[in-house]
């Protein structure tokens, strides 16, 4: 029984939503269920937050490695929760948007989250370089193709590409590197993306059906767990 009910719920909800697309009175069902999902996800925050706090408190208690930094996490978490839920310093009071300019919540976002976020993002500039160095090596035919495509596009994005090939006459201008780069983006790149997208859609269809029909049920756990 413990196992049958969840399987039935998945089957029922999944089938209902698929058919709702074709039935006008049920049109808004999908939207509502998405909203339902969001609401459940907020309840799940209790589990996540509880877990976060528990992990760091136990690190602190047991004086595990780096326990000092757990204090930083706990204070940051507590403080942000405090200013966010109570809308501290919000010029519009309780009715205003939580991220209203001037509120402490927004200031914390601007001066703590934002610099951290954008610097983590900016690390990509470095990793793009180290990945190119290591990965773009002509080890075999596939890798060589990968390497050449990347190189032509990189060259085409700098003035170098034009300078190197500016002497090519207009009647052969496809061989000018910037033009070639654009052409690759519009032909091979388009074709590859499309094949991948069509494959993905079929993968999703089959995956959804496996879940709805209960062929895939690992998420339900074992039969006898209490």
């Amino acid at each position: 029984m413990k196992r049958q009910i969840p399987l039935f719920i998945t089957f029922f909800v999944g089938t209902l939503l698929i058919f709702s697309v074709f039935i006008p009175p049920m049109e808004t069902l999908g939207e509502n269920f998405t909203l339902f999902f969001d609401i459940i996800a907020v309840f799940a925050f209790f589990l996540g937050a509880g877990n976060l706090v528990r992990v760091h408190v136990s690190k602190l208690r047991k004086r595990k490695a780096d326990w000092g930094f757990s204090i930083v996490t706990l204070i940051g978490f507590g403080f942000m929760l405090f200013v966010g839920l109570l809308k501290i310093g919000n010029p519009g009071g309780i009715a205003a948007d939580v991220t209203a300019p001037g509120s402490w919540f927004q200031e914390m976002f601007n001066y703590v989250i934002n610099p951290l976020q954008s610097t983590m993002y900016a690390l990509l500039a470095f990793f793009v370089a180290s990945a190119s160095y290591r990965a773009f090596r002509a080890k075999n035919r596939e890798a060589t193709i990968l390497l050449m495509a990347a190189f032509v596009i990189l060259l085409g994005r700098t003035p170098l590409g034009m300078m190197l090939t500016a002497w090519i006459p207009d009647s052969l201008s496809i061989f000018q590197i910037p033009n070639m780069a654009v052409w690759i983006m519009n032909s091979f790149n388009l074709a590859g993306q499309r094949a991948i997208l069509i494959g993905i859609s079929l993968g999703v269809v089959a995956m959804s059906l496996r879940l709805i029909l209960g062929v895939e049920r690992t998420y339900l756990g074992g039969d006898d767990s209490g």
């Binding site: 909203l35 969001d38 609401i39 996800a41 907020v42 925050f45 996540g48 937050a49 976060l52 780096d66 930094f69 757990s70 930083v72 996490t73 706990l74 204070i75 940051g76 978490f77 507590g78 403080f79 942000m80 929760l81 966010g84 839920l85 939580v98 991220t99 919540f105 914390m108 976002f109 703590v112 989250i113 951290l116 983590m120």
Partner: peptide
Amino acid sequence: KFAEHLFVGVSAAFWMCMGFWTT
């Protein structure tokens, strides 16, 4: 480590507050 731990704590609370107020 300091930046990382601060980021985790503050941003977890950030999204929790957003979830509470918007949803």
